[in-house]
Design a protein around this nucleic acid. Sequence first.
DNA 1: TCCGTTCTCGTACGGTGTAAGTTGCTCGTA
DNA 2: TACGAGCAACTTACACCGTACGAGAACGGA
Lengths: 225, 225
Amino acid sequence: MTESVWFGKPKSGGGQHPGLSRELIVRKAVEMLDEHGLGALSMRKLAAQLGAAPMSLYWHVPTKDALLELALDHPFSELEPVDEGVTWDVAARGLMHSMRMIALRHPWWVKLVGSYMTVGPNAVAMADGMLKVMRDAGMSVVEASRSSSALSSFVIGFVGAEVNFNANGAVDQIDVSKLHSLYAEKFPYYAETMAEAELWSVDKQFDFGLECVVAGIRASVGALR
Amino acid sequence: MTESVWFGKPKSGGGQHPGLSRELIVRKAVEMLDEHGLGALSMRKLAAQLGAAPMSLYWHVPTKDALLELALDHPFSELEPVDEGVTWDVAARGLMHSMRMIALRHPWWVKLVGSYMTVGPNAVAMADGMLKVMRDAGMSVVEASRSSSALSSFVIGFVGAEVNFNANGAVDQIDVSKLHSLYAEKFPYYAETMAEAELWSVDKQFDFGLECVVAGIRASVGALR
DNA sequence: TCCGTTCTCGTACGGTGTAAGTTGCTCGTA
DNA sequence: TACGAGCAACTTACACCGTACGAGAACGGA
């Protein structure tokens, strides 16, 4: 969290061969999370991958939760910066698509977003960028805040479900299809939807929702440059 | 998940005094989750609360994950049914507000929504109700599906952040305010927002986003009765 | 009476996060 | 050159977790 403390206090003085560092640990953690998922990451395994003893990590990181909070901020750096001079809705679409891509690349990331406060430098940089675009478009502080909240709420909710489906949906498919036939007469509208749903494009579903929010913002907010 | 299997196979025959049952276990689990949160629930503690040995639970429930999946479906039953004869947007607003209330009552619920497939009877009943309203309003199957997806994605994303903030925001407030002063000159728009944000109503923020999605749906969908 | 079924329980294993204390290295200084 | 100071890694140990396995208790039907 407080990365600045590190840079502000190099703490001159002696020491054993460092070999380990917070950045190195976080990077390896992200790598392992990408490969084997959230449930497979333990301090012991992480230490093993780093060729260190488990407890050695605790010198650089106070707790596993803190480590995850640091890891959570990492993928935010993959966000493509907004182009200069585009309208707020174009910038918003770009950022939100970028967020979705991050989530699909790092499935663990979505779950962590809902479990920790996202106040890391990269996350805040993104929020700041989004807010800037909207303020520049003429929105008030409240309008900009609420608009970006609406956008990112939708995206996080959507990709949360999407990632979850990618992980569990395929595995439980047999059970799910059984369930659907059970529910068929009791929940006809649900059944009707599920019967067709496999053919639809998830990308278009995402774009539909995103467009809804964008259109809604445009309609709800007053003067837009 | 397959509650029907239970009712379909009463399996006549002798047996020891039951004293325990899946429904009882799930109910107690929900109760403990409400009281102490997701991290505080263990099979051992749950068994203790039920006056049983830890392993006794495993006769009624195959695994802890399955138990959580059952618990996840439980709060969906608290949804207030949609009134007959209202327009789709009124029904949608009602259901989404109802969902938010569930999330605020059961903070653990939001996190589980993102971790398990929500195909329990109560969850499906809600989805079916939402879809019915929209189909009756003249939407096509795809339109109804995408609209309700957009709505619930927003709500889940929003309440996820809200619940997360309620849990962690207050605790880390000192650190967060420190951070904000650190970020002040680097992220002016973010800082500008945070300086005012405390005064705003979360309810209004939610309503703003919800209204965006509703308006967006109305604009994007063709014939609406 | 005996058997089969249903349910509960005791034991044990491998795994987890991490508190506490120990060791050894490298340095600035004397 | 010798020496404390401090940093960074390691070892040990504890409490707790989910749950595989198997034994045994209570019941209904034959």
